[in-house]
């Protein structure tokens, strides 16, 4: 299975090699894709080596999780859609039929037709190309925001759970205070203060939902803190920093991964919502939210303008949620076993 994906990747790499231009977009995409292909190759190699050396019947927690996940059909469907969306996002510059920024005054507000598969918008831009670019931007921002979000949430949760007492009180009350500010209000205020821009958007979005993240990790590290192997490490004199790094964090990985997966969908939805309100990604950069807002004005003339971004949002959020839920079930059952 993995090998087929790897071969497809190689094929795509060769295919698109000719299309690299000095354009930064294509360069970045191509290098990211190349790195992913390399990682895939490494995974295949390690798996093969492990299969050779390991005795039969011995399985790691990850194996068990994968077996559980594989039998969960909706989670697998979610996973494949997520993978597909990732491909689309990464390879966007190579697969778009038209430049999403170029306006074609001869083809204004078209419905689906043979040339523009999903029609064009009121300025003659190809909707399919814009949707693909919007997906790329949404996924990119979503991923970055969630990474930042999980980094902050995890470290705060780890500290609060491991040290407990006043540290715990301080961190958790602070987060609860932060969380009590209505999100939209805070987003408007922050965007107004910082100015709109991709980086500020990522920052604003990543600051929400830290509390949920921290709470879960805090609960886990509170439990792990009492585990005998943590006690053993303390008795050996291992400093707290290393205990956190080596003994607590690796055992919190499962919930972190689940939370992050679920949050990507949510974050993309949030960004779309902000863009819909005009607070998020600014024109002319294509974004799912602003495309939707735009389409709303032409609901009677050209409904594809709304349907396309709406469907993409639905697809992204649904697939990430299905996949995340499946992951949670798979990991939870491993824990209870």
């Amino acid at each position: 299975m993995l090998r087929i994906v790897f071969l497809v990747n190689l094929f795509l790499l060769l295919l698109f090699a000719g299309q690299i231009t000095t354009n930064a977009d294509t360069l970045i995409s191509y290098s990211i894709f190349a790195v992913i292909t390399l990682i895939l190759a490494a995974i295949i190699l390690t798996l093969r080596r492990r299969n050779k050396t390991k005795e039969r019947g011995i399985r790691t927690g990850w194996d068990l999780m994968w077996n559980k996940l594989r039998r969960n059909k909706s989670a697998m469907a979610g996973m494949w859609v997520v993978c597909g969306l990732c491909y689309v996002a990464i390879l966007a510059p190579f697969i778009v039929p038209f430049d999403p920024y170029i306006m074609d005054w001869g083809a204004l507000s078209l419905g689906p037709e043979s040339h523009h598969w999903l029609g064009t918008d009121e300025m003659g831009r190809d909707t399919l190309s814009r949707a693909i670019y919007a997906t790329r931007i949404a996924m990119g921002i979503g991923l970055m925001a969630v990474t930042l979000n999980s980094l902050i949430g995890t470290s705060l949760g780890l500290l609060a759970g491991y040290y407990g007492g006043n540290t715990d009180n301080f961190i958790m009350r602070l987060l609860e205070f932060w969380n009590s500010i209505p999100f939209i209000l805070m987003a408007i205020a922050l965007m107004a203060a910082l100015g709109s821009g991709l980086f500020n958007l990522i920052l604003v979005v990543s600051l929400t939902g830290i509390l949920e993240f921290a709470r879960i990790i805090r609960g886990d590290s509170q439990l792990l803190r009492q585990a005998d192997y943590v006690n053993a490490a303390k008795v050996m004199g291992i400093p707290d920093r290393q205990i956190l790094k080596r003994h607590i964090l690796p055992n919190c990985l499962a919930p972190i991964i689940i939370m992050a997966t679920l949050r990507i969908g949510e974050t993309i939805l949030t960004i779309a919502g902000l863009s819909f309100l005009g607070l998020g990604i600014q024109a002319p950069m294509p974004s799912l939210g602003s495309m939707l807002a735009n389409g709303q004005q032409f609901l009677y003339e050209n409904i594809t303008m709304s349907i396309v971004p709406g469907t993409v949002i639905l697809l992204i959020v649904l697939s990430f949620n299905l996949f995340g839920d499946g992951l949670r079930d798979a990991l939870d059952s491993r824990i209870t076993q």
């Binding site: 927690g61 585990a227 005998d228 192997y229 053993a232 080596r246 003994h247 690796p250 055992n251 990985l253």
Partner: peptide, 8 residues
């Protein structure tokens, strides 16, 4: 069972 780190 709880005295050894399962990830090491």
């Amino acid at each position: 069972y709880s005295s050894l780190n399962p990830r090491m």
